[in-house]
Design a protein around this nucleic acid. Structure first.
Lengths: 135, 135
DNA sequence: GTTGACCTTATAGTAACTATATGGTTTTTA
DNA sequence: TAAAAACCATATAGTTACTATAAGGTCAAC
């Protein structure tokens, strides 16, 4: 199949497919005489795998690692588990950081209501006075 | 004061200060005869304001807007409130997205324990089989 | 007079694409 | 059959908010 069909099949932009190839995530396919890329079902599987990983927010580097594990199937899979544990930890850190940020923002938002002039705006005042560390 | 002193004072890299100037967030300071930038306390205040906004995860574009409000202090401050409301909404969306992601990751992680070979790894199998939409 | 700390500009790199420009090929339609 | 539409190719630049590098000018101290 050609790149456009593959793109529709996996719901990815053709540019993105070429990008993954360039990044070494998708093996370079054979070419027709005219230079068009020709993909197999293996490519489609691999591309779908990449996309599912991206939905899980895994970076291209992490996906690269997972693929190298896949390509050497008799290794112990503890590395896969460790990668996912790391990623879960990372996501949890992001969540707590954003939750504390949300608190700050809501408290700041409470310091002003509509109807004032900017000069008297409690929010701008709040940002200006707030120490860089305090919650 | 020169750029290095300002950088230490506000705890920002000198490069970042020049970057903010280039982006129009920090007004271009006067120069000494040798071309060195000379900053005033006003600059330090403005830079600190920018940094506090960045800690609140506001984008440079949002900071730009806030500054334009500050520079025209007799406007109603409802725009400031709206900007912050938007930002809070954005942060909350990020949090819920990450929480659902965390759930998926934890469930995936539960599908494999150490001690297997990659070939039999429940995680890789899980990614490979998982539909792109299901939770 | 040279070492070191400071300053200057310009350019490239980061992540993961997305968009644009330019041009060749194939398929469809009038 | 010829032109239009759809597809393919490459290369390059843009996005965000910096950070890093290169190559060089200035200043004080030793």
């Amino acid at each position: 199949m050609r790149i456009g069909q593959l793109a529709r099949l996996v719901d990815v932009d053709t540019q993105t497919i070429r990008f993954y190839e360039q990044q070494g995530l998708l093996p370079p396919p054979d070419r027709q005489e005219n230079g068009y890329r020709v993909y197999t079902d293996k490519h489609a599987e691999r591309l779908a795998f990449i996309r599912r990983c991206r939905i899980l927010n895994l970076s291209l580097a992490e996906i690269h690692k997972l693929q190298s594990y896949q390509d050497d199937p008799h290794q112990p899979c503890s590395a896969v588990n460790a990668l996912l544990d790391d990623h879960i930890y990372h996501v949890r850190s992001q969540i707590t950081a954003l939750q504390s940020l949300e608190k700050q923002l809501v408290s700041l938002r409470g310091s002003c209501n509509d109807g004032r002039e900017v000069e008297a705006c409690g929010i701008l005042a709040g940002i200006s006075e707030r120490s860089t560390k305090a919650p």
